[in-house]
Simulated assay, not measured.
Amino acid sequence: MIKVQQEEFDVQALYDDLVVNSNTGAVAMFVGLVRHFSSLPSQDCTFELEHYPGMTEHNLQTIVEDACSRWSLNAVTVVHRVGKLAVQDKIVFVGVSASHRAEAFQACDFIMDYLKSRAAFWKKETQGNESKWVDAKEQDEESLSRWE
């Protein structure tokens, strides 16, 4: 399942959907949160995510298909929020079920690495009255080299 949405998501319900059959021996999940990114602890921060509808879902589907071709997976769920988010709001859920933990862990890690670098999302941080678009991080690109 792949969803791009503004609404909050229910981690327990998404987990439940990953336990698809008695062959499921492991579920690995990642939940990303908006962190307080200002150097001033008292300063209000908001985070805004924009995307290109259709293209974003296609990017995510390609990433999931690649993971499924590398590991024997039972189910994969990716939910990514867009719109304005506040500190500690959930941004992304990646969940993978497999027969064995190593496959689930590796596939979840792989999906997150590629999602951070290849999915069509644009991020804007607002601190007080100042906003800026967030550039891609070199570290995210370097993480991809593990999977080549």
Score class of each variant (00 low, 15 high):
Pro53Ser: 08
Val4Ala: 08
Ile91Cys: 06
Gln127Arg: 12
Phe30Ala: 08
Ser69Glu: 11
His36Lys: 12
Glu125Asn: 10
Phe30Met: 08
Glu138Tyr: 05
Phe30Asn: 12
Ile111His: 01
Phe37Ala: 10
His51Trp: 03
Glu142Ala: 15
Ser38Phe: 03
Glu48Asp: 10
Val20Cys: 14
Glu65Phe: 03
Leu60Thr: 11
Arg70Ser: 06
Leu85Trp: 01
Val78His: 02
Lys124Val: 09
Asp44Lys: 14
Ala119Met: 07
Gln5Val: 13
Asn21Ile: 07
Phe121Gln: 12
Ser145Trp: 04
Asp113Thr: 13
Lys84Asn: 04
Met1His: 10
Trp71Tyr: 05
Ser117Tyr: 08
Met55Lys: 15
Gly32Val: 10
Leu49His: 06
Cys68Glu: 15
Ser97Gln: 03
Tyr114Gln: 09
His58Pro: 01
Asp89Glu: 11
Ala120Trp: 00
Ala102Met: 05
Glu138Ala: 15
Thr46Met: 11
Phe110Ile: 00
Met112Ser: 05
Trp122Cys: 04
Glu103Cys: 07
Phe105Arg: 12
Gln61Ile: 04
Asp109Leu: 14
Gln106Trp: 05
Val4Thr: 11
Arg146Met: 09
Gln6Gly: 13
Gly54Met: 11
Cys108Asp: 01
Val27Trp: 01
Ala98Val: 00
Glu50Val: 11
Glu48Ile: 02
Asp135Lys: 14
Glu57Lys: 15
Val34Tyr: 05
Phe93Trp: 03
Thr46Ala: 10
Tyr15Val: 04
Asp113Asn: 14
Asp109Gly: 12
Ala28His: 11
Trp147Gly: 00
Leu49Tyr: 01
Asp66Tyr: 04
Ile63Gln: 08
Glu148Met: 13
Asp113Ala: 13
Glu50Phe: 02
Gln139Asn: 08
Gly25Arg: 05
Tyr15Gly: 05
Phe93Cys: 04
Trp71Asn: 10
Thr56Arg: 06
Pro53Gln: 09
His80Cys: 02
Leu85Tyr: 02
Phe30Tyr: 14
Val64Lys: 12
Asp140Trp: 08
Gln139Asp: 11
Arg81Phe: 00
Ala136Gly: 13
Ile111Ala: 02
Val96Met: 07
Thr77Cys: 09
Thr62Tyr: 07
Ala98Thr: 04
Leu33Ser: 10
Cys45Asn: 06
Asp109Glu: 15
Lys90Ile: 01
Ser143Glu: 09
Glu103Gln: 14
Thr24Glu: 04
Glu138Lys: 11
Gln88Lys: 14
Val87Ala: 10
Glu141Arg: 15
Glu125Gln: 14
Phe110Lys: 06
Val34Asp: 05
Asn21Gln: 07
His100Asp: 12
Ala13Thr: 11
His51Tyr: 03
Arg146Tyr: 08
Arg81Pro: 00
Lys124Ser: 06
Ile2Ala: 10
Val19Phe: 07
Val11His: 07
Trp71Phe: 07
Gln139Cys: 03
Glu65Gly: 14
Phe105His: 08
Thr46Cys: 12
Val34Ala: 14
Asp16Cys: 09
Thr56Pro: 00
Arg70Gln: 15
Thr126Pro: 00
His58Val: 06
Glu57Asn: 12
Phe93Gly: 05
Ala120Asp: 11
Gln43His: 09
Gln6Asp: 08
Trp133Met: 13
Ala136Arg: 07
Arg101Gly: 03
Ile2Val: 15
Ile91Thr: 06
Leu60Asn: 05
Arg70Glu: 04
Asp109Val: 07
Asp17Leu: 12
Phe93Pro: 00
Arg35Ile: 06
Thr56Trp: 00
